[in-house]
Nucleic acid binder design. Structure first.
Lengths: 203, 203
DNA sequence: AATCGACGTTATCCATTGTTAAGAAATTCA
DNA sequence: TGAATTTCTTAACAATGGATAACGTCGATT
């Protein structure tokens, strides 16, 4: 019962997307760039980008949930989750043109706006604000990364889970538990135990 | 026997520095920018930037070793080490102008080239290549971060230590062990045990 | 030389995780 | 609906990390 990667369904070309939070001036010239965008529907567990491939697309989640994962000696671990309106790309490989270190996969059946690399580059070329937006986005991601990283160094798995419940309950509500476990850096078994302890001990 | 932060010794203005890997065209116009650079000597354990302060400088290690650290409920943990020719800044706060989440400290007595924020901004303004270099630098850091992050999710402390021995032996050779421990996210006691196990078991 | 402080090691005790295996519960799909 | 798959839970065992305390070592200072 595997989902073949070919069974994608390209839907009609989208309206000016809110990908990248809206680029000033894009809407007016939308016809020139429309062709670079596609709206595609993926089933759950579809592979949008496979580790080792050269990325050629940027994704924006319109509906559903995606995750990024890396394969570390056989074990797939999830590094991030993405929900509605989040932008996803193997950002550093996309730029460098080298094989991606990460995979991008769907968690739920999802509708995704796909921006071709050529389109991305055209936008970057034609809209001067894009570069600053990109920098800004990188800086923000950086900060979030640093914060997350720090939490891994200082918090116990139990504390991380509790923190996650507060900071992003969507993950716990919508994502299968074993993905959450790998996101927390622990085994599904251990997460199950932690949840039990929380249930009984403190609630 | 505290090192007062005032006991710094500003040395003569440097030659065109290799900070940021050399900016095309800077050397020719060096006189205009010289004033923004200082070379300063710090004793070990000096505080170059304190958590909560608004960062106003970028540092480049000329000799010695710096580290970045965050304070997580009373416990200082080290997030990165920097050696000769590394560039150090509280990158996201530097940009946003908000209080720094991290501290920057010297590990060894160090000689550091300090670039004032005004100078940094002047360079960014006057040399178009700077923005691309900055983007490139960010992308690379990003990749490194992602890789490190992944290693924390997948490796045991013991494996992380072994990996560190391979990937950056300078850290283990030059940095006091308890800093390494906090860098690995474990206690000094635990690191000591791990080292012992490695010594006896495999070696 | 004696002292002080910083750093590293070792031991003990307790809590937690990983591993493996088995079974229950929930979902998917035919 | 019923079967197959996936996901979650629980148990038992071994290994490891955190906390604490005691001790040793080294270097700097007086």
């Amino acid at each position: 019962m595997k989902h073949s990667r070919q069974s994608l369904r390209a839907l009609r070309v989208v309206d000016p997307p809110n990908i990248f939070g809206g680029i000033p001036g894009l809407e007016a010239r939308w016809e020139d760039y429309r062709e670079f965008f596609r709206r595609i529907e993926f089933p759950a567990k579809a592979v949008l980008l496979r580790e080792g491939e050269i990325p050629s697309k940027v994704f924006s989640v319109e509906k559903g949930c995606l995750r990024t994962a890396i394969d570390r000696n056989g074990k797939a671990i999830t590094t991030q989750f993405f929900f509605e309106n989040d932008v996803v790309a193997s950002i550093e490989s996309f730029r460098s043109g080298r094989p991606s270190q990460i995979s991008i996969l769907s968690v739920e059946p999802s509708i995704v706006v796909v921006l071709q690399k050529r389109g991305f580059e055209a936008l970057l070329r034609d809209f001067p604000d894009m570069k600053d937006m990109l920098l800004e986005l990188l800086f923000r991601r950086f900060e979030a990364y640093a914060r997350l990283f720090a939490s891994y160094l200082t918090l116990t798995p139990r504390q991380r889970y509790l923190a996650l419940m507060k900071s992003d309950p969507r993950i716990i509500e919508r994502v299968p538990q074993h993905y959450v476990a790998s996101y927390l850096g622990i085994t599904p078994v251990s997460l199950s135990r932690i949840r039990k302890r929380i249930r009984s001990r403190s609630t």
